[in-house]
Design a protein around this nucleic acid. Structure first.
Lengths: 343, 343
DNA sequence: GTTAGCACTCTATGGCGTTGAGTGCTAATC
DNA sequence: GATTAGCACTCAACGCCATAGAGTGCTAAC
């Protein structure tokens, strides 16, 4: 049996209706609201076929049908029509942002808020710090803070600052530190950020006079060097409690707990990060706790780097078109603000 | 009518039992579990008195009694006994922390997690950045990043770094920037951080040669200068869904929404911030959404500065003693780690 | 191929009696 | 005078049952 054009139309109508109401859809509803040329009996036959093909499930004999995950898959791949955002919506989204914001974290928080407000689902934004493999040291300096305490500054080509407060075992004054800064500069400028510890260790071997200082430096720098962790910001988790699928509190709790667990969120986001958009439905999300959720993610770039993923989590019965439109808009705006502030 | 010692005991038993079970407590329960010398009838008379005095409410005639907010107030002020943490609990709490962590944000997240895990309630941690009124500039430098782009560094006495990426309208090379850095140093070192914009504006008046640069600087610095926002970290919101008081999903949603709204959280925390510990019960919390919650907060200091507030939010029927013990421990540990990393 | 008609299924809803925990009062007891 | 046994009364919770209504699936007619 094949899906002819009418079956597509009916399936689409069922999905649209179910997304809106969360009530199992009956043949009569379709016949009256969507396909007035056809009687409910005809729809009934078609629905029976659609069920046999795996696109519909029936909760029990005398309820209507609900779309299966396979149906949602078909929906997002072929049936869904792109809906542009209305002017008011665009403006409202726009209003969430403040172009003067500089810190990635703050921008991400606003974006998450915008996203969850506009969609009424939960939103997640992951920012992946630029890899230190590609960053080269541009400037090195030791700044005197107080006797025995100095600040080591490492500045990279893109303006990133690594600052490390050092407790010096040797007693060095401002002039000493200035002199040493120049020597450090000679050796470290141009070095990849990740190679700094190695370079320092090598210097310690050559330069016995200041080995105590170099040990301090090395220790301080090592602390800073550990692999930069991606950061995750979540918004609108409480929104999920609006939907009848989470009226079971225990279920809701498990889902909200996922939103509070960083590594589960990362798993949820990282799977989709290769594609520009990714929609994962039910078990495709990969976590047992989200087996009845869908996750829509998009990646954003600044320059050539993929810097993060922005996503929406909601019930499988999700307003996919709307989510995609909003996600696209917010993602663009987010990346734009980051671009503006980084250069 | 006065509260004699026996009434205190009975009230305490009722509160203890209700905190544990969330079930209205009957006279028979008290007589069997807590006051075996007294018959249920006697307890009944006492409970009737306690209700008249406003310490107990009855949901309906044939249910037991539940403690009123007034009772909880009395409980936390006079009846509660301090319970020290068990060794295992201390160890488990300890395990949440990583002493090598440097960033306030990361430490706060761990602390919030520890707090909500140990208490099974929601936790909130606010960190208030050190006021720029007391910070003085220690070191000023412009670092060349790429043609037309420079980084302005302002380092203060406590090692805080303010970095600002500047897009220069004038074309200045590395040597120009170095020269200008020295002039800036002369004028700015020793200045209060908050006075930097004023000082720059004054320089612009005197020093026409570089007024374009100074305008750029001023603009960049102003962006950084805006009042530093306190930061809020939340943990374990999903925990609240464990409790029968939030089995009404709509109620739960409103409460969890508060945990996602920064300014409401700040209001919740700032009230209690003057005292070392503060327990606010029900309406005392100040927000309508938390009228059936309690908020326990503690402040922590590093040196003489109050740097933040750490709090637990849960139902009024909260395990106050335990919460206080855990809060105390986590607060101390948190402050300790910050102290260690800041100097 | 489509549709009207009808028997059948199953949940949701509301009424109703029962159960049991708990109270409040009174009278007897210590 | 405080305590307690005894008892009538109250009220939510629970299970039971009948009913309503939405929906299906099948058959026969169009």
């Amino acid at each position: 049996m094949e899906l002819d054009e009418r079956k597509f139309r009916i399936l689409q109508a069922i999905i649209d209706d179910y997304i809106l109401t969360a009530i199992p859809v009956g043949s009569r509803t379709i016949s009256r609201k969507y396909e007035q040329k056809l009687s409910s009996a005809t729809i009934r036959n078609e629905m029976s076929d659609l069920e046999e093909l795996g696109y519909l499930d029936s909760p029990h004999t005398s309820a209507g049908r609900i779309p299966s995950n396979k149906a949602y898959r078909l929906y997002v791949d072929r049936l869904m029509r792109q809906v542009p955002l209305s002017v008011e919506e665009t403006q409202r989204l726009h209003g969430h942002f403040d172009r003067r914001m500089k810190q990635v974290h703050a921008v991400a928080q606003r974006a998450a808020q915008a996203l969850s407000n506009a969609t009424s689902y939960a939103s997640v934004i992951m920012t992946r710090p630029t890899q230190s493999t590609v960053l080269r040291v541009k400037h090195v300096q030791l700044v005197h803070i107080s006797p025995g305490v100095a600040l080591l500054l490492l500045i990279t080509g893109n303006g990133l600052v690594k600052e490390t407060l050092l407790h010096l075992s040797a007693d060095l004054d401002i002039d000493d530190l200035y002199r040493i800064s120049r020597i450090l500069s000679e050796r470290l400028v141009g070095c990849k950020l990740e190679d700094v510890p190695t370079a320092l260790a090598q210097m310690a071997g050559d330069w016995h006079e200041q080995s105590a200082l170099l040990t301090d430096l090395l220790e301080g720098v090592r602390d800073q060097m550990d692999v930069p962790q991606p950061e995750v910001v979540v918004g609108g988790g409480a929104n999920l409690l609006r939907y009848p699928e989470y009226s079971d509190v225990e279920k809701a709790r498990e889902l909200l707990a996922v939103l509070e667990t960083k590594d589960k969120l990362l798993r949820l986001l990282e799977q989709g990060s290769e594609l520009e958009f990714s929609i994962r439905i039910g078990p495709e999300t990969g976590l047992p706790e989200t087996a009845d959720c869908s996750v829509v993610t998009g990646t954003y770039r600044v320059g050539n780097d993929t810097i993060g993923t922005i996503g929406v989590i909601g019930p499988t019965r999700m307003q996919y078109q709307k989510v995609i439109s909003v996600l696209d808009y917010v993602g663009r705006t987010f990346a734009q603000i980051l671009r503006d502030s980084e250069r």
